[in-house]
Simulated assay, not measured.
Amino acid sequence: MIPISCHAVSGVALSTMDGETKLLVMKRVKGGFWCHVAGTIEEGETGWQTIIREVSEETGITVNELYNGLYLEQFYEAALNRIMVVPVFVVYCPPNQTITLNDEHTEYRWCSLAEAKALVSFPGQKALYDHIWHYFVDNPPSPLMRVDIC
C-alpha cells in the first residue's frame, strides 16, 4: 500500500510588471531549484491560512486577493513511500510587486510563462504554470474560486 498525504500547500503569485503579467519563481537554498511558494500546514491552520502565512514569510507580500487554483500538485516520495498531494492557490499582487526574500531562497524572478517553464526542473511545475496561465491570466477566474480571507 502507498499512503496519500496532504500536509502542505503551494501558491503561485502573479503581478503586472510594466504592463505584462508575470509569475514569481524563486531559487531554493535547499536543492538549488526554482519553484513557487510552498509550505507545511501548521496545527490549527486551514490551507488558505497557511498559504497567506507562507507567502508573507517567503516573499514579504501581503495577500489581499487569493484564489483556489483548482489544481493539486502530486508526486511520489520514494524515501517515504508516499504520495504527496498539495493544493495550489493563486495570489494576485499589485502591479510591480516588490519582493523581500527570507533565508529559504537565494534569488527570485518575475517571469513570463515561457521563462518560468524554462527555469523549473519538474514536469508537474510546467503543467501547473500552464494551468494557472490559462485559468488566471488568459481568462478571468470564476468568482466562485475566490477565497474570502476576511
Rank of each mutant, 00 (worst) to 15 (best):
F75D: 10
F75Y: 15
F75V: 00
F75K: 12
Y76M: 04
Y76W: 11
Y76V: 07
E77D: 13
E77Q: 14
A78M: 06
A78C: 02
A78E: 15
A78L: 09
A79S: 15
A79L: 11
L80H: 15
L80M: 13
L80Y: 15
N81H: 14
N81V: 01
N81S: 13
R82D: 01
R82T: 04
R82H: 12
R82M: 08
I83G: 01
M84R: 15
M84F: 12
V85S: 11
V85G: 04
V85D: 06
V85E: 15
V85A: 14
V86D: 02
V86G: 04
V86I: 11
V86N: 10
V86W: 12
P87Y: 11
P87V: 07
P87I: 05
V88E: 15
F89Y: 15
F89P: 09
F89E: 14
V90I: 06
V90T: 02
V90C: 09
V90Q: 13
V91L: 04
V91Q: 09
V91D: 09
V91N: 09
Y92F: 15
Y92P: 03
Y92E: 13
C93R: 01
C93Q: 04
C93W: 03
P94G: 07
P95W: 13
P95I: 12
N96R: 09
N96D: 14
N96C: 02
Q97E: 07
T98C: 08
T98Q: 13
I99V: 09
I99K: 03
I99Q: 02
I99W: 04
T100C: 01
T100Y: 00
L101G: 04
L101M: 02
N102M: 03
N102R: 06
N102I: 06
N102Q: 07
D103G: 03
D103W: 05
D103Q: 08
D103F: 05
E104D: 10
E104R: 12
E104G: 01
H105V: 01
H105E: 11
H105W: 12
H105D: 08
H105T: 03
H105Y: 15
T106L: 10
E107G: 00
E107K: 07
Y108Q: 07
Y108N: 05
Y108V: 00
R109P: 00
R109Y: 12
W110A: 02
C111N: 06
C111F: 08
C111T: 03
C111K: 07
S112P: 03
L113S: 05
L113Q: 05
L113C: 03
A114P: 00
A114E: 15
E115K: 11
E115S: 09
E115R: 09
E115V: 00
A116E: 02
A116P: 01
A116N: 04
A116R: 02
A116Q: 02
K117M: 08
K117A: 04
K117L: 05
K117Y: 01
A118H: 01
L119M: 05
L119T: 02
V120Y: 05
V120M: 11
S121E: 11
S121L: 12
S121I: 03
S121A: 14
F122T: 13
P123S: 09
P123D: 11
G124S: 10
G124W: 13
